[in-house]
């Protein structure tokens, strides 16, 4: 059995770590973006589970796929996966994930904002691209979209190149690619944040807390907290 597990389990490669950064949001809150570790996946799965049934803005699709990807990472069934989390005072406000296909090619998986209206998704997606291009020094990032918001944000904002010839492993629509040239052309208007994160701030992001289910669904759907009389 141990041998079979060895066959099923992809070889682990140590990816260069994403150096944490802090982003000052419109509200004055500071979001720390840092890599999650495998031990944190259970908590992340718990955080996104309520979104599996939220149809609005394709949260169900994105949450279900992200859930599967993180579960795959947790149980050693995805190769070279990483996840970056956005935390405000330790509370999870969004996450992005992806993996590397080769040293030159990265694959962007998903972007999930748990708090909306603060551009958390835009900041985290930008952090993910920063990781692939600046830290992993990759030549291409394969990106696809499953929601109109994603399409508009990524494909148009970054002027991505459409590559119908490359299949994306999520299936679905075409691959769009980000190259270092496109990234650097867009960087000034899309990629922000400060490093290093001051120690006290980084400490707030050491332990992830997750929003309560009711609060999370309210944040994502905008469903009224209480009916007005």
């Amino acid at each position: 059995m141990a041998d079979l597990e060895g066959i099923l389990r992809p070889p682990e490669r140590q990816l260069p770590p994403y150096p944490p950064k802090s982003i000052y949001l419109a509200t004055g809150e500071q979001m720390v973006v840092r890599p999650a570790v495998r031990e944190e996946t259970s908590m992340l799965l718990e955080a996104i589970a309520p979104l599996l049934y939220v149809e609005r803005d394709f949260y169900d699709i994105v949450a279900a796929r992200t859930f599967a990807e993180l579960l795959g990472w947790k149980r050693y069934r995805v190769k070279d996966e990483y996840c970056l989390v956005g935390l405000i005072d330790g509370q999870l406000v969004g996450l992005v994930n992806g993996r590397t296909l080769s040293s030159k090619v990265g694959i962007s998986y998903h972007t999930l904002a748990l708090r909306r209206g603060l551009r958390v998704g835009a900041h985290l997606f930008a952090s993910k691209m920063e990781y692939h291009i600046e830290i992993l020094k990759q030549k291409y990032v394969y990106i696809t979209a499953e929601s109109p918001i994603g399409f508009r944000r990524w494909m148009l904002e970054y002027d991505l190149i459409q590559r119908p010839d490359i299949p994306h492993e999520l299936g679905g629509v075409d691959v769009w690619t980000l190259t270092p040239e496109l990234y650097h052309a867009a960087k000034d208007r899309l990629v922000v944040g400060e490093r290093p994160v001051p120690a006290p701030l980084l400490k707030t992001a050491e332990t992830i807390t997750i929003p309560e289910e009711a609060q999370l669904v309210q944040q994502v759907t905008g469903r009224a907290k209480k009916r007005s009389s």
């Binding site: 000052y24 949001l25 509200t27 551009r119 900041h123 930008a126 208007r189 899309l190 922000v192």
Partner: peptide, 12 residues
């Protein structure tokens, strides 16, 4: 600061 003065404002 968040919507105008900080560098992050270009994205915020």
């Amino acid at each position: 600061e968040g919507i105008l003065l900080r560098p992050e404002a270009v994205v915020n």
